[in-house]
Design a protein around this nucleic acid. Sequence first.
DNA 1: TGTTTGTATTATACTATATAATACAAACAA
DNA 2: TTGTTTGTATTATATAGTATAATACAAACA
Lengths: 124, 124
Amino acid sequence: MLLRIDMTSDTPIYQQIRNEIVFGIAKGDTKPGDSLPTVRQLANDIGVNPMTVNKAYALLKEEGIIVINRRSGAQISDYGMIGNAFDRDFDQRLKLLLSEACMKGASKQDIKKHIADLIDLVCD
Amino acid sequence: MLLRIDMTSDTPIYQQIRNEIVFGIAKGDTKPGDSLPTVRQLANDIGVNPMTVNKAYALLKEEGIIVINRRSGAQISDYGMIGNAFDRDFDQRLKLLLSEACMKGASKQDIKKHIADLIDLVCD
DNA sequence: TGTTTGTATTATACTATATAATACAAACAA
DNA sequence: TTGTTTGTATTATATAGTATAATACAAACA
């Protein structure tokens, strides 16, 4: 479990941890049933406070992305069951991205092409 | 100039103001050369402190989206000249969205279709 | 000259983030 | 049972971001 964390980023560390795990799942590197490192282990690897990792795990748990057994630690859940992929928050963030690209002069075709390329990069 | 601001949102107000203006430009409601309300006027309309609006304007100016003449106020700049629409930050945010959709079980085709629909909604 | 503009300054309050040091109940191995 | 590891709760502290508030000032223009 190697997570790329940028300490200088505006994005909070616990959020980055959560995102990196999402990336791993989407790419297929991490699959349902796979175990995550313990809170203390991951905190030690990254070099942050255990409570920061705990916050990331709590967030993932709340989202239904992982399940936590007190002893065996955290495992990737059956994330296919979570619900609608395109909820309001998702659409809001997506609309903002599309608008920014549009505003900067990218054509609709440019955007679609660019996204199609990225999908193959990040999705399994 | 009607901006929809959500006071209960986690997104900072100055950020929401900036985003709403971006939406307006992408959709074609606001065009290069168009004037924005004065800092005090917009602050009064929305019901926030003038310095909050000023922060949004300063951000838009830094991004090259508006130009500011001390007397005549803020105007939409020729945003086509800003640079590459797909910079590192843009791709990072886009990858996260695509990964989340993938993780939740959406197929690549689903995602492309959904995005194609949204593009027509938000872009001119 | 006088008014409006964006902007700078200073102060205050609140919240989020992160670290730190403990502590505790649950789960399991011995 | 006993002992260890797990996630988690608690409390305290420090820092930074956000927002408001009250002024003040230089630039632009009628």
